[in-house]
């Protein structure tokens, strides 16, 4: 808790949380949403493609979307770290935050596995063999992103302590 209290008083934390400008908390939150839209959006589009269209149309030409998805994840990660630094106690004392991380980790592992499979098949425009395992992974990924979004939204409602002082004073 001492660490969280210290973190909340760092210049970065105070600026993101309290600076009276749209470029602080609001803009960082927008970047977090934009990053989510890109990484989850392209991941969902690729997995819908796997589940519905990969038996009729090739998947490898869509490989550039993987790079775009990882770019979105980078934006989401950096902005997410800034949001965490702004309110570390709020997130780190809420179990829902850790569930969100598990959902995101699972979805990213599936994204990487699908990317490795597609890249391993070369830049071919022929149809790939979509095994049952890949299809299950694609379906699971859609559920994991839905879970990540759900837990992300719940964070605003399920936290117990907003700041370290709240925790120390027993609010």
């Amino acid at each position: 808790m001492i660490f969280l209290s210290w973190l909340e008083q760092t210049a970065v934390s105070v600026w993101v949380r309290e600076a009276p400008t749209l470029w602080a908390f609001p803009f960082v939150l927008f970047l977090h949403t934009l990053g989510l839209g890109i990484v989850a959006g392209f991941s969902v589009a690729l997995n819908i493609w796997v589940l519905r269209f990969a038996d009729r149309y090739p998947l490898p030409p869509l490989a550039p979307l993987f790079s775009l998805a990882w770019t979105g994840f980078t934006v989401s990660l950096i902005s997410g770290i800034l949001l965490l630094i702004a309110f570390p106690t709020k997130a780190l004392t809420d179990p829902v935050f850790y569930i969100k991380l598990v959902f995101i980790a699972g979805a990213l592992v599936q994204l990487r596995q699908l990317q490795n499979y597609v890249m391993g098949c070369g830049n071919s425009s022929s149809l790939l063999t979509i095994s049952r395992r890949i299809r299950v992974g694609a379906g699971l990924s859609l559920a994991l992103w839905a879970g990540a979004i759900l837990t992300g939204r719940l964070l605003a409602y399920t936290y117990n302590y907003l700041m370290a002082t709240d925790f120390l004073m027993g609010f």
């Binding site: 839209g37 989850a40 959006g41 589009a45 030409p61 869509l62 979307l65 830049n123």
Partner: peptide, 23 residues
């Protein structure tokens, strides 16, 4: 809804822009 909208429409938009040649 946002993720579905952005992911689907942006994928099509990118193909129109030239990303995803081969489909």
């Amino acid at each position: 809804g946002l993720v579905l909208l952005f992911g689907s429409i942006a994928t099509f938009d990118f193909r129109v822009l030239g990303v995803g040649m081969g489909i």
